[in-house]
């Protein structure tokens, strides 16, 4: 049961730029939530606050009953293991192949090697990349890289999937494919929070939509 509760959250970056102001938002377990808005509206910051990549300047972010603002540094890794993160820039490691990229989260949690390999192949199969498990990310297309990033995000079966512009640089066909993937995960009970400015995607999947503009919620 992973619930995310933001109360009156503000984030000000050094230099005085207010990325978010007074955001109050609850994401319930099993929800499919789209955070929409123009680029620069604060979508990414919102996701970063949820995953404890950044701490709020004021207000509280509570994940699983733990307050991210006051969480000690050594507790953060364990909190993050509840999440699967899909990054806009993929953040794949180019010095290893697709299979090894997907193995990384399991290595980190100290999973049994054989069980890890089985799960990694299952995750690759799920995103349709099993036949490319030996390929380096550099040899994959943009859509394939995005799917590989998704495989890495789901391989440890997280309760929550956080995705930042997962269809950002993809053409419509790829975007549909990836949208369907997220919808599938949500069907089996995974909470999905997705930041996007892709209106088509939102229209097709019928999620709960949270619109932000200039760092504030728009009703």
């Amino acid at each position: 049961m992973t619930q995310i509760v933001l109360s009156s959250v503000s984030k000000r970056y050094p230099g005085g730029h207010d990325a978010l102001a007074n955001i109050t938002l609850t994401v319930e377990t099993g929800e499919l939530v789209f955070i929409t808005g123009h680029s620069g509206a604060g979508k990414s910051t919102l996701l970063k606050l949820m995953a404890a990549i950044e701490r709020p300047t004021s207000g509280s972010v509570i994940v699983n009953g733990q307050n991210i603002g006051t969480l000690r540094a050594r507790g953060i890794p364990f909190l993050r293991r509840n999440f699967g993160l899909v990054f806009q820039d993929h953040k794949l490691l180019f010095d290893r192949n697709a299979f090894e990229n997907v193995m990384l989260p399991l290595d980190i949690t100290g999973y049994d090697r054989r069980e890890s390999a089985r799960r990694a192949r299952a995750a690759l199969d799920k995103v349709g990349l099993l036949h490319k498990e030996k390929a380096r990310p550099i040899a994959l297309s943009g859509g394939e890289q995005q799917r590989l990033c998704i495989a890495r995000a789901i391989v440890h079966r997280p309760a929550v999937l956080l995705a930042d512009e997962p269809t950002g640089n993809l053409d419509a066909e790829y975007a549909t494919e990836i949208g369907t993937l997220f919808s599938d995960f949500n069907q089996v009970g995974v909470t999905v929070v997705l930041a996007t400015h892709d209106a088509q995607l939102a229209a097709r999947l019928d999620p709960r939509i949270v619109n932000i503009r200039g760092g504030r919620l728009v009703a």
Partner: peptide
């Protein structure tokens, strides 16, 4: 740096 950053983002402890 990339590997360290990614590992940290997906829940690696400092010890790991």
């Amino acid at each position: 740096r990339d590997e360290i950053e990614v590992a940290k983002l997906i829940g690696a402890t400092d010890g790991w």
